[in-house]
Design a protein around this nucleic acid. Sequence first.
DNA 1: CCTGGACCTCGTTG
DNA 2: ACAACGAGGTCCA
Length: 373
Amino acid sequence: MTVSKFGRFLVSKEELCLTNVLQVGQSFRWIFDEKLNQYSSSLKVGNDEKYALVVLRQNSSNGEDFVEFGSVGGDCELGTLDSHLRNYFRLDVSVNDLYSTQWLPRDDRFKSHSPSGNRILAQEPWETLVSFICSSNNNISRITKMCHELCSKFGNKIGTLGDVDYYSFPSSDDIVERSSEEELRKLGFGYRAKYIIDTAKMMVEDKTANGYTSDTQYLMELGSKLTYEQLREHLMRYSGVGPKVADCVCLMGFKMDHVVPIDTHVSRIAKRDYNFQAAKNKIKDLSKKYTEYPITRKKINMELDLTRLMFVEKWGEYAGWAQGILFSNEVGNANGATSTGKIKKRELEVKPEVKEENTTVNSKTKRVKRQSY
DNA sequence: CCTGGACCTCGTTG
DNA sequence: ACAACGAGGTCCA
């Protein structure tokens, strides 16, 4: 099967860099073909719950940068795909405008961190939820492997490109009906196997009780009605979903642009570069506020939540995007997508040297890997 | 409310 | 070769 027709949108590499956006831990299912300089994945496009096999290429000619896109077999109209991808890549938002009007004036640290085409995606919420449940205490390479495994074992076959078969991301029903904790453990999911099965079961109950058959539609409806605090509370009811995973889902699955997921790296950045310390009285105020949110209160770490609030205050309404840029500069390279579905090391144009430095955290001395340019 | 530990797996590290 | 480590956390006591 091939792509018969391509569409394109013009976008500079400073606004969108596919390598940065698709291979660094937001999305885990894009496959990169080095020879063709082409990304491909199955993607739920349009409102009919159907997956399409989508192909992307980033190029430039005559000084114009653009992304070409198409669907294999043409099973998706080009106009539909165009508007879907404009939303998926959030082309309504200019990271460079945000950089110069919001982040740079508010935070000197951004002097040394330009966007470089890093941006936050608008992904399908159910896939985002399950993917980030897989991400706990894990590395990108294995998360990628697990996501592909979920699709090929429990999704539906969508099409073939080259010698690779593509599958839909399994719905909660697919997972409940076709999988089990035992099988997921055999496939290498470890203790996340139980989280995924329990979450899928709960999702089936939830959406059924609310009259939905589609995970996407149920969750999107929820997202349109609830505030951030309410949605996070709802998401943290699910097994394996703590504050970090819930925040990732809010940011990348629900377009809540101000949400800053706090992981070990961001927490370290806050202490090291922003001299952050949680004040006792602020902890008290916050825990009072969260009496309305029992699950949040149970699962949250007050210090980390105050870290999140500090960043939101500092960076403003697109704070989550700002975090993405600092994070990519802090962690930089990682493992990424492949051409065969197997995992191998991601190659970078320039390999930054990694050096060690000492940082003091909680009066303990800890060695930390950090990039230098 | 906070602290500490266990938890699957797997590539990297020494 | 092989034990020890840690990876963009979560759960339970």
